[in-house]
Every structure is written in structure tokens, then in C-alpha cells.
Simulated assay, not measured.
Amino acid sequence: MYNSKITGLGYYVPENVVTNDDLSKLMDTNDEWIQERTGIKERRWIEEGSEDTSAVMGAKAARIAIERAGLTTKDIDFIVFATLSPDYYFPGCGVQLQEMLDMRTVGALDIRNQCSGFVYGLSVADQFIKTGMYKNVLVVGSEFHSGGLDKTTRGRNVSVIFGDGAGAAVLSRTEDNTKGILSTHLHSEGKHAEELTVLAPSIRHWVPEILEANDETDESYFPYMNGTFVFKNAVVRFSEVIMEGLQKNNLQATDIDLFIPHQANLRISQFIQKKFKLNDDQVYNNIMNYGNTTAASIIIALSEAWEKGKIKDNDLVVLAAFGSGFTWGSVVMRW
């Protein structure tokens, strides 16, 4: 059986920086309030009139990752695209990416697992490679949140958290079973689906109803989050799925060289860091600069950490995510 390893990484974020002070001009909030609850100082939001969309940003990140892998777009055998904010209700962003990068008519799979999207995407790509079906798989996480947020005081608990951006990784075949992805672990608990959700538009609340209502006060069009409930579940599931990955590979927390959690809330990351007794050099966070970019958050952080030289050959790297669904998962890899 083959193994898979990351051979190329890349990320892209919009140039437009939105600080907490900027948000205070749109809603009743302030820098201290946001930082105390989330750790976020600023985020990137796509400016009106920009060409950027989830698919476009994904393509920009993918070009960087493919070049760094020493490959061309013709070498990619399959696309996995994770996002909760696709350009269209359908089709998904994967086929747009295939066209934008002038690829062969390779398969394109879209993943709708929100904050766990990139972890799920890596797991899917890993299985395709390990079975010998594909040699090089492009995994993308990209989000255009800002266009769908309630930027009023009513929506501040959610809208201050999210940012726009994209990241990409090329996963390639290797015959060295000591390197690359060692294991992935995926879970879900759908009974909590409406604790973090956008209820409309949907097939149950479709275009005629939207046009008839034309009601800008309808909160169901904007993301809803039961923040306290999500936080409590996140810290439990993060811990469980990290331990699951370590135990599967006969490892301990002390073996971790770098842990990259989904950038949902700095307080969650700090809680997990303390629980596993990891020092600051063993954990990489960048939520303070980008906010929560959902499916893009882990791959942006992983790319940035690699660029900064924080990941070395043979390092044990652990990724973990928790989000809407609820879904959660982890990846254990040897660099």
C-alpha cells in the first residue's frame, strides 16, 4: 500500500484588512470585547468589486501549492474542494477550479463539512492515494464569509469572528510508510445541526418564499451560532479526536512537534494547549490576524507555519478541527 504526503502548500487572503476598530463603526462592539472573547484582532474581507470569490481564491492558493510541489496543473489527478460558501448553490467550486486552472478533465469533489472541511478533504485524498487510484490530489479550503454576514449589532456575536481566505495542499504518493499521513479520524453528531447553521435559503425555504418575503429582518438568512454550547462541545471533541489519533499511532502528546487546531476561537486553542501540556512552540495559531476562515483555517495556518520554518523534516504534525454539523476530525502526519 502507498502512503501520501504533502508536497506543496499555498494560501491566499484578500488585501483588505478589517480591524476590530473598523467593526466598531458598523455595530456596537469594541476591540477589547472581541479580543477578550475570541482572540481576534483583525480579519480579511473581500472588498466590493473585487474579482475574488471562494473559487477564485481557491485557484490562487492552488497555483502556489502546485508550483511548490514541483508539478504543473496537468499532473493533478483529482480535486477536493472544501467550502461552506460556494460561488453557486450548485454546481460546486471544484469544477470551477478545474476550469480556472485549465486542468485535464479530472474528477472534482466538493466537501460541505464547514470547519472540519479541510481535515475531511485530506482524509478523502489520503484514501484515494493509499489505494493506488491517484498519484497527486489537490485539496483546497476556501471561504468567502463576509458577503453573508449580518454586519449590524444584531449579528455581532457571529460576524466579528469570520474572515475570508483560501489555502491549498498537494497530496502526493510516496512509498515511504514512515512519512506523510499516518492516520485520519472523522466524526459527526447531527443532532446538534441547528446549533451552528444557516437555515435559509434552502430547498425548504426557496426562491419564491424569499422573493415574497423580501424581509431583511429575517435572521434565518444569516449564520446562527449557540456560542456557549458550541464551545463546550468543541473542547471535548478536540481532546477526544487528538487522543484517538495519538493512540492509533502509539504516540503521546509529548511526541507532538506542532499542533495546528482549526482557528475557531483562540480560547479553545488555549484550553486544548493547556490540557495536553503543550508549550507555545508546539502550537500554531493565527486567528488573531485572519479570524475564523472555516475550511481554509487549518491549511492557511499550516502553509504559514511551513513558510516560517516552524515545520522541519520528520516532525510530528497534528491537525484537528471541530465545527458545524457537528463534525470533527484529526490528522496525524510525519513531515
Rank of each mutant, 00 (worst) to 15 (best):
11 Y>Q: 04
14 P>T: 01
16 N>M: 03
16 N>C: 00
17 V>A: 12
19 T>L: 08
19 T>M: 08
28 D>M: 12
44 R>H: 05
46 I>W: 01
47 E>R: 12
47 E>H: 09
49 G>Q: 06
55 A>C: 11
61 A>F: 04
68 R>A: 14
72 T>D: 04
74 K>C: 01
87 D>F: 05
88 Y>W: 05
98 Q>R: 14
100 M>D: 11
108 A>F: 11
111 I>R: 12
113 N>D: 07
118 F>Q: 09
124 V>M: 15
126 D>V: 10
134 Y>R: 03
137 V>N: 11
140 V>D: 02
144 F>M: 09
155 G>F: 08
159 S>H: 07
159 S>T: 09
165 G>A: 10
165 G>N: 04
170 V>P: 05
171 L>C: 01
177 N>T: 14
178 T>M: 06
179 K>Q: 09
187 H>A: 08
195 E>P: 13
199 L>Y: 09
204 R>I: 00
210 I>G: 05
211 L>D: 13
214 N>E: 12
215 D>N: 15
218 D>H: 11
220 S>W: 03
224 Y>W: 13
232 K>I: 07
234 A>W: 04
235 V>N: 06
237 R>K: 14
241 V>P: 00
245 G>A: 06
249 N>W: 09
250 N>K: 12
252 Q>E: 15
253 A>E: 07
256 I>F: 03
259 F>P: 02
263 Q>M: 10
272 I>A: 04
272 I>E: 03
273 Q>G: 10
282 Q>Y: 09
289 N>W: 00
292 N>W: 05
297 S>P: 06
309 G>K: 05
311 I>L: 00
311 I>Q: 00
312 K>M: 12
316 L>W: 00
321 A>K: 07
322 F>H: 12
324 S>W: 09
325 G>Y: 11
326 F>C: 08
328 W>S: 06
